[in-house]
């Protein structure tokens, strides 16, 4: 709170130097972990993105559903098509207030190119209980290349506030 003495630029003490060095090394380690995982790790944030209009994305979703639909299932009172695309293919999941469309059926250990986009507001793709979370924006086609490593029924929760029915926005991915 008080004015310092006139010359305060003084060498650091031994303990300060020790801590500063250790802390700086830790910061470098933190920095290096990200590129290291980028090249070596299996879980990285997708970066592939295209600009797309809502109408164009919706047309792709509909064509995708028509091509690979294998059944229907009711979720929270609404009937959704269940779609089982072949391994390696482009898979579409459409977010709108307040549903994820359609229900996807995938195979464990296979690779898929999952396209995410929103028709209206911002939404949050939150795959549970796997706990992978991505932001979904209108106008952006966000492509995540995924490999399911576990089987079962997974829930897609919306975790970005999208107006008053937000908490009812729940979708489903089945992995066999």
């Amino acid at each position: 709170m008080l004015a310092p003495e006139r010359i305060w630029w003084k060498p650091l003490g031994r303990l300060e130097k020790t801590w500063l060095t250790v802390a700086f090394v830790w910061c470098i380690f933190l920095t290096l972990m990200m590129p290291l995982w980028y090249f070596m790790g299996k879980q990285n944030v997708p970066t592939e993105t295209y600009k797309i209009s809502g109408a164009d994305f919706s047309a792709k979703v509909n064509a995708f559903v028509d091509q690979y639909k294998v059944g229907e299932e009711t979720l929270n009172g609404v009937t959704f098509p269940v779609v089982a695309p072949p391994a390696g293919s482009d898979v579409y999941l459409r977010a709108s207030a307040w549903q994820w469309y359609p229900i996807l059926q995938l195979e464990v250990g296979k690779t898929y190119r999952l396209h995410l986009s929103s028709m209206d507001l911002q939404h949050g793709f939150s795959l549970q209980p796997v706990n992978i979370n991505l932001q979904v924006l209108p106008g952006y086609d966000y492509v995540a290349t995924i490999v399911p490593t576990s089987t079962g029924d997974f829930t897609v929760v919306c975790n970005e506030f999208c107006s008053l029915g937000h908490h009812t926005m729940v979708g489903k991915i089945i992995v066999k």
Partner: peptide
């Protein structure tokens, strides 16, 4: 850590909550 989202009135809709 268990996947519960923020800004969500009722997570029981998600049906996955341990």
């Amino acid at each position: 850590l268990q996947g519960v989202s923020r800004r969500n009135w009722d997570i029981t809709f998600a049906g996955v909550v341990p």
